[in-house]
Nucleic acid binder design. Structure first.
Length: 577
RNA sequence: GCGCCCGUAGCUCAGCUGGAUAGAGCAUCGGACUUCUAAUCCGACGGUCCCAGGUUCGAAUCCUGGCGGGCGCGCCA
């Protein structure tokens, strides 16, 4: 919302009491109670102390010396302990409405971010199985944050990091090898203790036994991010792999095949969920380009490493971690932690001035060491920002469903999409603060009814579209606005709605800086409610042509805001329901 | 034991980064469809904002200490 005229007048008035711009921060807020006007400032409360004045008295003096046109502000009042409240002239509101209509799908954008290049990494699930529910939450929130940041003037880059190297892939290989042997009816093959017990491995093994190798196509090159690196099906055939004398080598072949299959599957899920990434980054790429070694060297030269018990340690306690961490194991293998540092070092080298990572609830222990490593690299305390997404409980019949990946009993993201639909899932995930545990009520999500907030918002959008269609049928052009029409909007429901709509850019900025996407869904629900009230109280297509045009304009503006908010959420805005 | 997150209406949660009388939805009760989509709207009921101190003009919001719940504390990833 622009209030330059008010700002200028206030700055001028404050000079009169001896305060200059560098002495204070002038802040405005939209009072939650419309009785307090359209805009409010607490500047008198903040300056009362340094000026040794009574707040209300000071506010009165400031208000009295304000030089501001009646075309801008219709009234100025002092209220409460010393707030200065402004009521904007009717003309201003009409202008706001015109702005929304003019800006259309750009309405809500700002240049808060000044094109800052921000890397946003989320989901980054291990390629050892299908996406689970926590990944689904990260998918919804991470992608929404990227869109919100973009709208707020940042230049976000979304990224998926895939741990396709290391022990887990070998373990996955052992698991698939055992299941494959079992599928062939061989005796004496068991999935290792630490292996992957999931049903999906059994399914993959059975396919392998019955149909042989299956070359996957990796969907989503344009939307999910092109894959750099080698994910080809390994040479030979599974019976040959199984026959290999070296069990590790055998498991490696099965592992590579499983990787090939899992990543293809994960990317199909992304496409189904409408989830996009700019980059799909493979850990193996780091190894191939020797980035672990160079990272280790850099830390070593800066004096942050030492050797003990044959391992190489990072002195993370220097940066507030509770204990030092191993970067290279006694057997010479790098830890996942070293790879992660190297990965973030690469992000930094690629020119991102900030990186945001989403962590799952079980990884919060890694924050301190990661931040420590970034500091050791000299990246500054704010360069890496780690956001924690709390766990998700699926609730069925009022009871939580237990989920465990290792035990193989898990609800996958695909199953969730199947069950409730991608749009409902996304909205539910976004409609909660990052740090809150999320009870996902499957029964509620499945209801296509009034109880389901997703449909509440979608319905508002569809309802507007319906009205606009009806206008056409009646020969009214919903786009036409004539001089003076908009001044006809005087009903409380109309002004409440308009006031809310014009807050959209600030709401997006708030969501962008707080990283809380629940601001967006919450706003969408508020706008929907305000529209439904307006619809209930005011007949849009009436006898009065001028008033009809004004209300159609307001409806179109609402449609724009709802469509934009839903787009940020990644949810479809239907024209009919 | 140590660390991180959470604690707001019977339930699920908001509360715009410290503002004015703490809000929605669900549930319960009552009302509104010959009228642009009733997947909607209106009303009623419902609170020790976990507790105790502190900071200040002002605290659900910030600080300290408790209490309660969740999670984490590998040369796993």
């Amino acid at each position: 919302m622009k209030h330059e005229a008010i700002r200028k007048a206030l700055v001028h008035a404050l000079e009169g009491v001896g305060m200059f711009e560098e002495d204070y921060v002038l802040e405005f807020e939209v009072p939650k109670d419309p009785a307090f006007g359209d805009l409010s400032t607490n500047v008198a409360l903040l300056l009362a102390k340094p000026l040794k004045r009574k707040p209300r008295e000071l506010a009165g003096e400031i208000a009295a010396s304000l030089e501001i046109s009646k075309d801008e502000v219709s009234s100025v009042e002092i209220a409460g302990p010393g707030f200065i409240n402004f009521r904007l002239a009717r003309e201003i509101w009409a202008n706001r409405l015109v702005e929304i209509l003019d800006q259309g799908d750009r309405f809500g954008s700002s240049n808060l971010g000044q094109n800052e290049r921000v890397n946003i990494e989320f989901v980054s699930a291990n390629p050892t199985g299908p996406f689970n529910i926590v990944s689904a939450r990260a998918a919804a929130v991470g992608s929404a944050l990227a869109r919100v940041l973009e709208m707020a003037g940042f230049s976000p880059h979304t990224e998926f990091y895939c741990n396709d190297a290391g022990r887990q892939v070998v373990l996955l290989g052992h698991s698939l090898r055992a299941r494959y042997a079992q599928a062939l009816g061989r005796e004496g093959f068991e999935v290792p203790e630490e292996g992957y017990q999931g049903e999906y491995v059994v399914t993959l093994a059975r396919e392998l036994a019955e149909k042989g190798l299956h070359e996957e196509s990796f969907e989503g090159d344009d939307t999910v991010g092109r894959i750099k690196g080698d994910l080809a099906v390994p040479s030979g055939v599974p019976t040959e792999w199984l026959a290999l004398a070296d069990e590790e080598e055998s498991a490696r072949s099965f592992g590579r095949y499983a990787l090939h299959s899992m990543i293809a599957q994960q990317r199909r899920t992304c496409v189904r969920f409408g989830l996009e990434f700019n980059t799909w980054y493979l850990e193996s790429e780091l190894h191939a380009t020797d980035k672990l070694a160079s990272t280790r060297r850099e830390l070593e030269e800066a004096g942050h490493l030492y050797e003990e018990d044959g391992a190489v340690w990072f002195r993370s306690t220097e940066f507030g971690d509770e204990k030092d961490r191993v970067l290279v194991k006694a057997d010479g293998q790098p830890t996942y932690f070293l790879a992660d540092i190297a990965y973030h070092r690469a992000k930094h080298a690629r020119g991102f001035t900030r990186a945001i990572d989403f962590f799952g609830p079980d990884h919060h222990g890694h924050i301190a060491r990661m931040q420590g490593a970034m500091q050791a690299m000299g990246y500054g305390p704010d360069w890496l920002e780690i956001l924690l997404l709390q766990q998700v409980n699926l609730i069925l019949d009022g009871k939580p469903l237990e989920m465990s990946k290792r035990a193989g009993r898990l609800v996958t993201m695909d199953e969730l999409i199947e069950e409730v639909g991608a749009d409902v899932a996304k909205f539910f995930f976004l409609d909660r603060k990052n740090g809150s545990h999320l009870d996902f009520d499957l029964d509620l999500a499945k209801q296509q009814s009034n109880d389901n907030p997703v449909y509440y918002v979608k319905y508002a959008h569809a309802r507007i579209c319906s009205v606009l269609r009806n206008a056409q049928t009646r020969g009214v052009d919903p786009e036409k606005v004539e001089e003076g029409d908009l001044a006809r909007l005087v009903e409380e429901a109309e002004l409440d709605l308009l006031r809310l709509l014009s807050e959209f850019p600030q709401r997006i900025e708030g969501a962008a800086t707080s990283r809380e996407m629940s601001r967006i869904t919450g706003f969408a629900k508020d706008v929907s409610a305000a529209f439904h009230q307006f619809y209930q109280n005011c007949v849009i297509l009436g006898e009065d042509e001028s008033l009809t045009r004004a209300r159609l304009a307001l409806s179109r503006a609402t449609r724009i805001v709802l469509a934009n908010a839903l787009r940020l959420a990644g949810v479809e805005a239907p024209e009919r329901m």
